[in-house]
Design a binder for these strands. Structure first.
Lengths: 336, 336
DNA sequence: CTGTTAGCGCGTTCAA
DNA sequence: TTGAACGCGCTAACAG
């Protein structure tokens, strides 16, 4: 059933080694022999045993991805981009789900044992400053690349550890330019998770940009987490105040979705009386109550894989990177 | 850097074999020795080399999952459940993305070569009646399990090929009971993809159920695909007719999202004047314009993994299965 | 209870 | 241009 190199060798009357070399197109095998070998391999459906190959060359041909969740927008985007990029390079991706610090470390160790050539990691949002997962990878001398968030103890980026983030500040400026052009001068801010570095940066970008453009915060500026429910509740409070913003800037699409629900429920029209912006350009932004003006980022997963691949090919170091933002205008924003 | 069994053996003054057995908790090793070995292994951060293990025991410890997309609701749900179930069983999942028939077959072959113990497969929606991916798996004698859709050439289910579907008919009945209880007698139907077996079954279930309950179709009954845009367009047409339904039954949450958008745009209130139901209970159903009454299914991915695992343990056959449906009542349905 | 022998399927090294 | 020996890290089957 399973064809081995040896089986091919026997039926061809060659040595195992000759067949092995022929299939890998080694320079020291005659082209006639190579053709014969390949024909036989195809015919019998030969495929090398990767376990044996890995054991010998110490390269498994795949990388590990550890993330908290595949169902979330964030997890899906990272895994999709990474998997595609890996496949294009002839490699595979082993996926692990880890919801706690303990599981993160376990997953990383399991992947090391299984022979991962690198670990890609989308950490949970946490307030811990060290990562046992990182320690495990370091001990094994394995390259590790963080998406979106990274622990405080990464060090100076030894070259074996790196990260790729979204350009949250750039995204903030795009949104502000857009709203400013439309004539908005007073905005509210509903951000994402306060413990997440990226969301904190978005907030800073918005704060600085609002000031620089002579705009003002009205009604509220706070972090409401990652779920629409919280955003809806906070948006209601904002709408209860005397002074209302003409636009609401949100830190994620999910938050924008919640805000929109509250605004429409209050009988305020979008974008007629109030504009709303999101961030992320996920499914929600297209299919919510109102198509959302939002920020799209290039694929984190793809960028991460390419950083690692390049470093490996050049035998060089992995440098941290930031993926670019782009404004997507839909129906949730209009003139002030 | 990398600790091997041999390294442990040397520093403990034992043979490699004793250490190997101790770590695997073999019955013929003294508990004192086991404790010593484990302590040392922990201390030095030992983790078995799976390539070597696999080569020896002829089991890779992982399964392959091939799907068209990780970003879609469907893909995310299947992969999440499968990965979780696999991890609980100490196994891993290698993910491949395939958008065409050719890529599907390539992915399957690559996974076979890498040593997958089984292939789990969420096929594209297609009208082809044979699957080259299936052929590849069959040739290698590998178990293969289809999610949601399967090709016509699966045969009688040799026991090595199986599938797991959602209970679309059951889901249809739950929705109809719910609407009937609320007093609805005239309904429209907006279904999913006409080429997808599951959606065709949903439609049949609804048709039979409507008749059995003395209800009637009004306004429209058609398949509008998987995207909200189409549904929105068709819903508009339905709303233009004289006779309007009091409820709209949709074949997916995405379709329901589009329908809701059209209904609200026409100034019709939900659920006051019209009720809407979805199917799937994905992100969209929670976060759209109006929280959606919909059908939730147990995890396909988990069910699939467990079918395979059980068959493997019992050395038995894989039987096709159908995962159960459950009605989730939210705000999009009310009295007629 | 513990150790020895003998590979799993492949690729590197070096001799023919 | 080809092949033989050897070993990667681990474990099944047997001795001791």
């Amino acid at each position: 059933m399973k064809v081995r190199l040896r089986d091919l060798a026997e039926s061809l009357g060659l040595s195992v080694m000759a067949v092995s070399k022929a299939l890998r197109d080694a320079p020291d095998i005659g082209s006639a022999t190579k053709a014969r070998v390949r024909a036989e391999a195809d015919k019998r459906g030969y495929w090398p045993n990767e376990s044996a190959r890995s054991l010998r060359v110490k390269q498994s041909g795949w990388v590990g991805l550890v993330l908290p969740d595949l169902g979330s927008e964030e997890g899906a985007m990272v895994s999709g981009g990474l998997t595609e990029a890996a496949q294009e390079a002839g490699m595979a991706v082993l996926v692990g789900i880890a919801r706690t610090a303990k599981e993160e470390a376990e997953q990383v160790r399991a992947m090391i044992g299984r022979g991962a050539e690198a670990i890609f990691f989308l950490p949970r949002i946490s307030t811990e400053h060290r990562s046992t997962a990182l320690e495990a990878a370091n001990r094994a001398g394995l390259p590790m690349l963080f998406f979106e968030r990274y622990p405080a103890d990464v060090g100076q980026g030894s070259g074996r550890v790196s990260w790729v983030l979204r350009d949250m500040r750039g995204g903030a400026q795009l949104v502000l330019d857009h709203l400013h052009d439309l004539g908005h001068r007073s905005v509210a801010y509903l951000g994402g998770h306060s413990a997440a570095r990226s969301h904190a940066e978005h907030f800073q970008g918005i704060q600085e940009g609002v000031r620089a453009r002579g705009m003002a915060f009205v009604g509220g500026m706070l972090m409401v987490g990652l779920h629409p429910e919280e955003a809806e509740k906070e948006m209601k409070k904002i709408l209860g105040k005397k002074e209302k913003p003409t636009a609401v800037i949100c830190g994620t699409d999910a938050v924008a979705t919640g805000a929109i629900r509250a605004i429409l429920a209050a009988g305020i029209s979008i974008p007629g009386e109030m504009s709303v912006t999101g961030l992320g350009d996920g499914e929600l932004s297209k299919h919510g109550a109102i198509p959302l003006t939002t920020i799209r980022f290039s694929s984190l997963g793809r960028a991460g894989f390419e950083i690692w691949k390049k470093a490996r090919e050049d035998n060089g170091e992995m440098k941290p990177a930031i993926v670019k933002s782009e404004l997507i205008v839909r129906e949730s924003t209009g003139k002030a």
